Amino acid sequence: MAHDLTLDVYHRLTESGRVAWDIETNGLEPTRAMIGTCQLHSPQVGTFIVTGVAGRIPPLLARLLSDARVTKVFHHAPFDLSFMAHAWGAEPSNVACTKIAAKILSPGQAAERYSLKYLMAWHFGLALDKKVRFTDWLAESLSEEQIQYAVGDVIRLLDLYDLLNGKLEEKGLAELYRECREFLSTHVRLRLHGCADPFSY
C-alpha cells in the first residue's frame, strides 16, 4: 500500500482488536530520521506493508495508533512510538511491547537475548534474516528481500506476545508489565523532550 491504509483495511484491523506493528526508518534518531514503511499483521486480516510515508502524516495509521480499542503490539515499542509521535503528532494508546515483557521475565540478560531475532529463534525456531536491515526503506517500491524482512518482523509477533503474557501471568508479573505498558506514552514524551530517563542518577 502507498502512503496509508485503505479505509476498508483500517476498519477490519479495528474490528480484529489487536495488531502486530513495526516500522523501518532511515536512521535511529526520531527527530532527524524518517519513517520509511509501516508493516502490520493481524491473523484475521493479513499482513500489510505501507510504503512512502516519509514526510507524510498517514491519517488512518495515526488514528489506529491512538485508538484505545485496538492493542498495538511492537517489539521495542519506545523506538517505533518515538518516531510516530514526532512525525505524526499522534498520541499512542493501548500499546504492548514484547521486548519489555522479555526483560521483565528475565532481567539482567545480555542485550542480544532480548532481540526479536533471538526470541523468535528461541521460542519458535524461526530464523529471521537481518541482512537487508540497513537498506533504503524510503523507496516507494521495495525489493522482494525487503518485503520478506518486513513481513518476518510482524508475522509471529502476536504469538510471541501471547506466549510472554502467559509466562508473566505464571510468574505474577502481569501487573508490573501492565504498568510499564501504561507508562509507554509518557516515556515517549520524555524521550522526545530529551530526557528519556529522569530517574537515573
Rank of each mutant, 00 (worst) to 15 (best):
V188T: 05
A90L: 11
K167N: 06
G36L: 07
F48N: 10
I155C: 01
T186W: 04
E175R: 12
S185Q: 08
A77R: 03
Q109W: 06
A85K: 09
F183Y: 11
P78G: 14
P30H: 04
F83N: 00
D159Q: 12
R18E: 13
E91V: 12
F48I: 13
A174F: 04
D153L: 04
S16I: 05
L5R: 06
R156F: 03
L116Y: 00
N165V: 02
R63L: 09
H11R: 12
Q109K: 12
K72Q: 04
G89M: 06
I104L: 13
S115H: 13
F199R: 13
A101F: 08
K171S: 13
W88L: 01
N26C: 05
R181E: 05
T135E: 15
R181P: 00
A111P: 03
Q39G: 03
L28V: 15
G17W: 02
L119K: 02
T47M: 01
G55Y: 00
C38S: 10
E112D: 09
L142G: 14
D159T: 05
E169W: 04
D80I: 01
V19H: 09
W88N: 00
V19R: 08
G46V: 04
Q44I: 01
S66D: 04
F83H: 00
R133V: 07
L7D: 10
V45L: 13
G46T: 05
C180L: 05
L138T: 08
K99W: 07
P78L: 09
L173Y: 03
D197W: 11
R56K: 07
V132W: 04
A102H: 00
A102I: 01
Y114L: 14
Y161F: 11
S141V: 15
C97S: 06
S16C: 10
A77Y: 06
E15I: 07
G172T: 06
H41I: 06
S200M: 09
Q39M: 10
A139D: 13
E29Q: 03
T98E: 05
E144Y: 06
K99Y: 06
I57G: 01
S16E: 07
G89F: 05
P92K: 09
G166V: 09
G55T: 00
I147M: 11
I147L: 09
S115G: 15
H86S: 14
F134M: 14
D197T: 14
F124V: 15
G89W: 06
L119F: 03
G46D: 02
R189L: 15
T25N: 07
V154E: 03
E169M: 07
E182V: 05
R69G: 09
